[in-house]
Each structure stands twice: as C-alpha cells, then as structure tokens.
Write a protein that binds this DNA or RNA. Structure first.
Length: 326
DNA sequence: AATACGGGGCC
DNA sequence: GGCCCAGTATT
C-alpha cells in the first residue's frame, strides 16, 4: 500500500477503527490456545452470536485439552448438539486425544495436519494464540479484499497472497481479527456502510459492493423421507447415525426416497404404522420433508434426553410427544 | 474446482 | 424463501 498524501495509511486506519469498535467477545479475553482453538472451530460457518453460547457451554464441560481428550465422543456430541456440522466436534475430540500430551503446536503447517483444522483455522490459531505472522482468510476477509481491489471472483491463491501482503507482521492476531471485524460490522454482504468505513479511501470497489465478490452459485434440492416413531416403555427406538449426515448423533429411524416406509417397517418387523404428521427440515444442500409414522414397540429403547440429538430429530421428538396436531 | 456438510438469523 | 456465515474434507 502506498503512503497516502493527505492522511493515514490503510493499516493504521483499520487498527485505529478496530481499537474503538471491536466487539467484546468472550474468546478475545483469553490467551489460552485451547480456548482460542475451540472458538475458531465453533466459528466455522457459524455466526458469532450463535457461537457465543456454545463456546461457554463447551469450555465449561471441557475446560482443557485433557478434559476433552478423556471425555467420551458421545459426551462431546451432547454438548455440541444443535450447533451443526457435527464432524467438527468429533474432529476436535480426536485432535485433543492426539495432542493432549504435547500441547497444541504453534506452527501453521503442524496445526493444519490436525483433524478439522484447515488453512483458515491453522492461520487463526497460529496468529491469535501464538503471534505467528500468517494471514487468516475467512469469508469476511474474502469479501473485504475483493472489494478493496475490485476482484469479482477471487481465487484462493490470490486471496492468500493479497492477505499476506497486507498483513501487519507486528501484530498478526489483532490484524486478522480487525479485517474480519470490518467485514462483519461494516463491509457486510448486503448494504455495506461505505460512508463510515475507516478504509473507504483505499477501496476501489466502494459504491459497487454488490459486484465484489460475485455471489456463488448454490442450489437446494427437495427430498422426501420417512421417519419411524417407536415408543417403548422407557423412551423410543433411536439409532446411532453413522453416515456422513449427522454422523455420531442419535435419531429416529429415518430413510430417504421411495420405499422408505416399507424399508423401515421391515427393519423392525412391523406390518403397519399410523401417520403422525410431517416435519420439515432444511440443510444447506437439501430440503427434507419427512413423513412421520408411529407404531407401538415393546423391545429395547432409548431415553431421548440421554442421547445427543440433532435439531432435526428434536423436531420429530416434539411431534411424537405432542401427538398428531390440528 | 466442485460438492457435501447443520443450523440460525436476517431481509 | 433465499442468502450466507471467523470452513473442512473429499473427490
């Protein structure tokens, strides 16, 4: 960045703004690398306000690497339940078991070898917890850089190089957070506040923010599914999911597509079941419409309150307890 | 480079 | 109902 003629340069301008406007977030008050790691994993594709509660809850349950390493996977998932992307919890658990003895590595390359740690989280932890001079590029930084330099489809390589060039090597952790905070509070996806932006005079995309970066293509397909509510003496029949979706969590017997109902009935040796209602649940990539059927059950069952359930299965549980509605 | 992967909040 | 978030792993 060139020194400006009549004012401050970009770096001090952003840092001055950050000092005055940084939100008081719980993970900003700690130097504990483990706590910072937990916050960063929780923040993967998750809004700050949503992550707040889970952060407090997770650290209360597992205050350090050893506590997490010694917990059962199911306990970890129970605390994580509702936060989504459950692979994150299972990876964090595995990570703790891998480094409980040695402690977290400080080098980004070593961090990135750990399960669930990609380029962003490795850079964030290395810079914020260990002061390493590496740029952390998240969705906020991507948007800020695309607008600063009017790049409509920024590649991962360009983003990393540009962020490294801009990085304040004297205080990389604060710098990375300042850039993200700007994207979160000022340089927002819709209607950015260019009029009050501390770096507007350095920004080539000011006033045409909607063009930088261009929105990514997405689609969500509609999928029908069937769930089975088998109520026994002590709870319900719950299965431990082992697929990619909701892996490790427990839930009602569920199957997608045609013949799902017959498939489930035969799995439990049932001739019929009565319709209980419908549950809708949207994932990032598909929208599920689940027809829920109920039947009596006298075999082994599970207490749903004692098992980690996803929000989806919470909806089915609510329907089961409420009975067929109006 | 493209796709799968949860949930919540905002317009 | 669409959009998108302090992304990662897999293909």
């Amino acid at each position: 960045m060139q020194a400006s003629c009549g004012g401050m340069e970009l770096r001090p301008a952003l840092l001055a703004w950050y000092r005055r406007n940084a939100r008081d977030l719980p993970w900003r008050g700690t130097r504990d690398p483990y706590a910072i790691l937990v916050s960063e994993v929780l923040l993967q594709q998750t809004r700050v306000e949503q992550a707040r509660g889970y952060y407090a809850r997770f650290l209360a349950a597992f205050p350090d690497l050893n506590a997490l390493a010694q917990a059962s996977e199911e306990d970890v998932l129970r605390v994580w339940a509702g936060a989504g992307y459950y692979r994150r919890a299972r990876n964090l658990h595995r990570l703790a078991q891998a480094v409980a003895k040695t402690g977290l590595p400080a080098a980004p390359a070593e961090l990135e070898e750990l399960p669930g740690i990609g380029p962003y989280t490795a850079a964030a932890v290395a810079s914020i917890a260990f002061g390493k001079p590496v740029a952390a590029v998240d969705g906020n930084v991507r948007r800020v850089l695309a607008r600063l330099f009017t790049v409509d489809v920024p590649s991962a390589r360009w983003l990393q190089e540009t962020a490294e060039r801009l990085l304040d090597r004297a205080g990389p952790g604060v710098w990375n957070q300042a850039l993200m905070e700007l994207g979160s509070l000022v340089c927002t996806p819709k209607r950015p506040a260019c009029a009050t932006c501390p770096v507007a005079r350095f920004c080539q995309g000011k006033g045409a923010a909607e063009r930088y970066p261009l929105p990514r293509a997405r689609r969500r397909t509609a999928v029908s599914a069937t769930a089975l509510v088998l109520k026994g003496a002590g709870g319900y029949v719950l299965e431990r999911r082992d697929g990619r979706v909701l892996g490790g969590l427990w839930g009602f017997p569920l199957a997608e597509g045609k013949g799902a109902r017959e498939h489930l009935l035969s799995r439990y040796g049932l001739a019929s079941a009565r319709p209980l209602g419908t549950v809708e649940h949207a994932f990032t990539h598909k929208k599920l419409t689940i027809r829920v059927y109920a039947a009596p059950w006298s075999g082994p069952d599970e207490d749903p309150n004692a098992r980690p359930l996803s929000v989806l299965d919470g909806k089915i549980l609510a329907l089961a307890e409420r009975g067929p509605g109006p």
